[in-house]
Design a protein around this nucleic acid. Sequence first.
DNA 1: TGCCAGGCCGGGT
DNA 2: ACCCGGCATGGC
Length: 211
Amino acid sequence: MYDTLRKAYGPQGWWPAETPTEVAIGAILTQNTSWKNVEKAVAALKKAGLLDFRRLNAIAEAGLAEIVRPAGTYRVKAGRLKALAAWVCHRSGGCLEDALKGHMPDVRRDLLSIHGIGPETADAILLYAGNHATFVVDAYTRRVLRRHGLVADTADYAEIQSRFERELPRDAGLFNEFHALLVEVGKRHCRARAHCDKCPLSPWPHEADAR
DNA sequence: TGCCAGGCCGGGT
DNA sequence: ACCCGGCATGGC
């Protein structure tokens, strides 16, 4: 599946952000939100000079909320950005890359202890900002795999993630590309009510014996 | 014009 | 251990 997508779309060069800090902020802002809306909020943060955890740690939450408003659920997300900023500042004085430098799965556990950071957000930060080989499972990943009969409908996050991590070489570069490709094919052909014709994976061969 | 988006949390069974 | 409502804007 990876080879098929890679041939169809080429290298993705993800995450669509310039710095690790921007990656992590985007990861929080995109929770249950389309990327288009996130881009507006990130642009507003950039304009305000707030793509910086020490600044985020210092700014008032209510003001931050107004700035990230285009991303939706903006009061919630302002709190989550503040929680992450406090963690990064406490841990490394404000440098995210340093804060992510520990070993897995210790760093993952620490990220998950932050209020508002769940498994997907943590893994996106670990992989795309910290270069840790952890597989990101999002709504697209789930949909694509389910529609091609590769996981049960009831499969939860850990189950899907372990499937990737068991059956692929534990390589951050590979995980990076594969997840980005899954999002790309998902956006084009596997949104909630779209159907999958013309998808490069459709019909996916040997679906039954691929299990 | 609704429906939905690259989740997560808290409270109720 | 599940299930569900709340959060909320902008795009299609």
